[in-house]
Amino acid sequence: MIKLIGVAIVILGFALKLDNIAIILVAGFVTGLVGGMDIVKILETIGNSFVANRSMAIFIVIMLVTGTLERNGLREMAAKLIGKIKNATAGMVIGAYGVLRLILAAFNVSLGGTAGFVRPVVMPMAIGAVEAKHGKADEKHVEELKGMSAGMENVTWFFGQVLFVGGSGALLVQSTLKQLGYETDLASLAKVEIPVALFALIVAGILYYFKDRHLDKTIYGQKK
């Protein structure tokens, strides 16, 4: 029973927003000590696991080009690509961004997140679509469009990234299962997620499209 103290430390620590790295180390040392390991054995276990899981640092190699891709106009071209849909409603702009983001997430490429892409690119396009139709965008509508853009951003990123063969999520699953004695391979782990990712994109796309259409009707309809 006392061995669960580490689990309690992790849950409480994360919930109380303490420093994540400190929580993990404290939980590790406390669990090891109450579980009958000495300091040397604990350090050896940490070292062994860390070295065995060096593959999780693959993002470092990827970063060798992500910054430079950005430098060479990746965001600008992504914006241009989304801008290609004609007569788009705000909901369609958000949906198109979702499609692009999911595809790029599957290749482990981010366009810069909310600060780097949604605020400077997606929102002006969505608001532009509303203004083209109604002249001025309603405040309540804009607030919801922001919420939906951020939602699309998160949904497609979470469920898209797991399609990348060698993403950090799958690597952690692989190492967790290995400790329990189950061998898995990265390509199969990614394959399992294909229906999930497609379904997530469809659900969010349809939901946001109709929500925007509904808002569009209820907000501007009464003014006419």
């Binding site: 029973m1 061995k3 669960l4 580490g6 689990v7 992790v10 994540n20 790295i21 993990i24 180390l25 939980a27 590790g28 669990t31 090891g32 109450v34 579980g35 009958g36 390991m37 054995k41 604990i42 276990t45 940490i46 062994n48 696991s49 860390f50 899981n53 060096r54 999780m56 640092a57 993002f59 950090s168 690597l171 952690l172 190492s175 967790t176 400790q179 329990l180």
Partner: peptide, 25 residues
Amino acid sequence: PLSMLPMLLAALGAIFTTAGVGQVI
């Protein structure tokens, strides 16, 4: 430093396994 979270959590998992936490849960 938060990019190290997956690797550190994997190490914590290894300690949990060695200490027999799974069985208790």
